[in-house]
């Protein structure tokens, strides 16, 4: 029993290491684009993988890893935002300020800064859907698992988000 338990712990550790190795960068960027600050992103990503490790036993299928992990990330971002900011207005103001005057931002790339400012004008839901579709290029069915929203609603949300981003960039070019 001791041997089988050790073998099981070793298997879990190997599996988790593989997940970390494969998803740490995409998860980081997914989080970073939403919380803006590198330091905050680093903290949130740590929490994502801590929670992932603790719930690894719940993961049954290998092809369910990505939506499972991103769902944890979405929840951790929401938790972080709720703990840091009192309301949506304060959140948007603070994130915009960090984007305009923060560390680890390439201000020589003015178009990219404008693009990220456009994302900050989106609602939390719109931003999440946009990030997953635009940057992570996830199929709607997978986003549906993450956001617990119907595919049709996601398509509408993404379309609206794209319009808002496009309008912002064209008006602030």
């Amino acid at each position: 029993m001791l041997f089988s338990r050790k073998k099981s712990e070793s298997h879990i550790a190997d599996r988790f290491t593989e997940i970390v190795n494969r998803y740490r960068e995409p998860i980081y960027w997914f989080v970073r684009r939403q919380v803006v600050s590198h330091y905050d992103a680093d903290d949130v990503v740590q929490e994502v993988f801590i929670r992932a490790y603790r719930s690894l036993d719940n993961l049954r299928e290998e092809n369910a890893v990505r939506p499972w992990l991103y769902r944890i990330a979405v929840n951790e971002i929401a938790r972080f935002m709720a703990s840091r900011y009192r309301n949506e207005g304060e959140l948007t103001d603070e994130l915009s300020h960090q984007l305009t005057d923060g560390e680890y931002v390439d201000y020589d790339n003015a178009m990219a800064v404008t693009f990220q400012k456009a994302l900050l004008t989106l609602s939390e839901k719109q931003r999440t859907v946009f990030e997953l579709r635009y940057y992570d290029e996830m199929p709607y069915e997978e986003i549906s698992e993450i956001c617990d929203t119907s595919v049709n609603t996601l398509k509408t949300t993404y379309h609206i988000a794209r319009q808002k981003v496009t309008d912002y960039i064209l008006n602030n070019d």
Binding site: F16, R32, F49, Y104, D106, A112
Partner: peptide, 22 residues
């Protein structure tokens, strides 16, 4: 469209830090 950068060497050490913390 991504203006964000990371400290030098951040991703090289990120995996180990995550594994140790988790």
């Amino acid at each position: 469209s991504n203006p964000y950068t990371v400290p030098q060497g951040y991703f090289e050490h990120q995996e180990r830090r995550i594994l140790v913390a988790s």
